[in-house]
Write a protein that binds this DNA or RNA. Sequence first.
DNA 1: CTCCCGATAT
DNA 2: ATATCAGGAG
Length: 212
Amino acid sequence: MSRHPARIQKICQILKTRYPDVKTQLNHRNAFQLLVATILSAQCTDRQVNAVTPNLFAQLKTPEDFARAPIETIETLIHSTGFFHNKAKNIQNCARMLMERFDGKVPDTIDELIQLPGVGRKTANVVLGAVFGIPGMVVDTHVARISQRLGLTSSKDPVKIESDLMDIIPKSKWNDFSLWLIYFGRAVCNARKPDCPNCFLTHLCPYPDKRI
DNA sequence: CTCCCGATAT
DNA sequence: ATATCAGGAG
């Protein structure tokens, strides 16, 4: 179980008070759109993703549309999110696999989701939580960094961090916890210049005024 | 481990 | 100029 149950409980309580109504910031209308938007979000801000998805989903609506489209069309539509060659290819092959193996629908298990091109555990857990309400710990750059700073894990491996966090956070809070750290990471505990002097978790953090 | 890559903040 | 952004694949 938890090595610091009281401290972790306080951290969760404070985060919940600060961020009572968290949800994904990736704009979408359905499961497929969220899957595509999350693939696009790799090493890219949500803001940049939300800037391209309205036009992207106006041009290409269904997995069939993405499967048939010339790759250059997809590349152009997503260009500003970066890694556009890889992302376009992954999204198209993802759409094709959805049609061939999953009846054109987004699957609801992590084992199936991570089979899709461009979909790793982070993307899969985003979709599981937001679309299907299935508990999952989303370990992105924010969750990894802040978990290390708070001393909730000593690992740099996202898979190990995910496991460490699932061991110390109640399953019912996995989805919210990920989002709390992401909101917190953007607003306070950012990568380059964490605002420790004004941080509401400093008294519970073993590494105030330090960088990891 | 390296590569993929544009947009933004510092 | 450099670091970073809701990572994933080879």
